Amino acid sequence: MKQTSLLGLLLSCLLFPAVSVADENAGFLQKIYLSFCVKHLENYGTLRAQLEQQELPKLPPEQARAFLHNKPGDAWPIPFKGQFGFFVMALPEGDQECRVMARAGDAAANRRWFARMAEQAPAPLQPSMLADDQLEYPLSGPSGRLSWQWATEHAQRSLVLTLITAQEPEAPIQAQVSLTLANR
């Protein structure tokens, strides 16, 4: 991907207005996603090294495994209002994906900010919807999925943006948003 395209992507994402104050969890989820996953999409390995260099507390492998879907990688709890446990960022090995999970949040608010962002890929990338469906998700049970792809017409790689929101209010994870560098 060209450097100018990446810069356009980053600038457009950072200029999006935050969701309303009515749902701080959705706003914070968006902020983490943009600050970690989108900002560092060209090199998740560098992001991992920076987090380790800063000695940020990392989840032990047995706890991280659930956030990594039983794959190798690392997961960090992200503090929110001075407390840990509501948000987790995960970087699976291979440095091709970044995901952020939230224990609380409003599905409609998360879908609004995510859809607004996903529909507006920066030029020359073209957005295309991949999924708007229901699935059984390991961390949240019955869930809604909204997924978009950003790519140029003949690109061999694309960016896949996915939001998964729980349908049950008791689900341990209410939202997961991810950005994956994928082969087409």
Rank of each mutant, 00 (worst) to 15 (best):
R103S: 06
L68F: 08
L68I: 04
A115Q: 12
L125S: 01
P138Y: 14
G141E: 07
F87C: 08
A102H: 03
R48A: 00
E55A: 13
A49S: 15
D74E: 12
A49R: 15
H40R: 07
K71N: 13
A49Q: 15
D106Y: 06
T46D: 15
P122V: 07
R112L: 08
L135I: 07
D74Y: 04
L41T: 03
R103E: 06
E97I: 01
L139Q: 14
E119D: 11
T46A: 15
A107W: 01
A75N: 04
D106L: 12
V88W: 01
D106I: 07
G73K: 02
E136C: 06
L130G: 04
V38W: 04
E42P: 04
P79F: 14
G144C: 02
P57H: 11
E55G: 10
P77F: 03
A115W: 03
Q50D: 15
W148D: 05
D133R: 15
Q126Y: 06
Q54M: 12
M129L: 14
A75P: 01
G144R: 06
H40G: 01
S140P: 07
D106T: 10
A49Y: 11
L135D: 05
V38K: 07
P92A: 08
A107M: 03
A107Y: 03
Q53C: 09
Q63F: 11
H40C: 02
S143Q: 07
H69T: 10
E97P: 00
S147A: 11
G105R: 08
C98P: 05
L47D: 00
Q126H: 13
L91G: 00
Q83E: 14
P57L: 07
A108C: 01
G94H: 06
S147N: 02
R103A: 13
G94K: 05
G94S: 07
E119T: 13
L47H: 01
D95W: 00
L41D: 00
S147H: 04
L130C: 04
P77N: 14
R112D: 12
Q96H: 13
P124T: 07
R99K: 10
P61K: 15
Q96G: 08
E136V: 09
E62V: 14
E42Y: 03
K58G: 05
R65K: 15
L59R: 09
D132Y: 06
K39Q: 14
F114I: 09
L146P: 05
A131L: 06
P57C: 04
H40Y: 11
G45N: 04
Q83P: 01
S128W: 09
L41C: 06
F84P: 11
R48H: 05
L139A: 10
V100E: 05
A104C: 02
E119N: 06
M89T: 12
F114G: 05
F80M: 11
G144I: 01
K58P: 04
S140L: 06
A75I: 00
N43E: 03
L59D: 10
W148Q: 08
F80K: 14
Q126V: 13
P127N: 12
A115N: 12
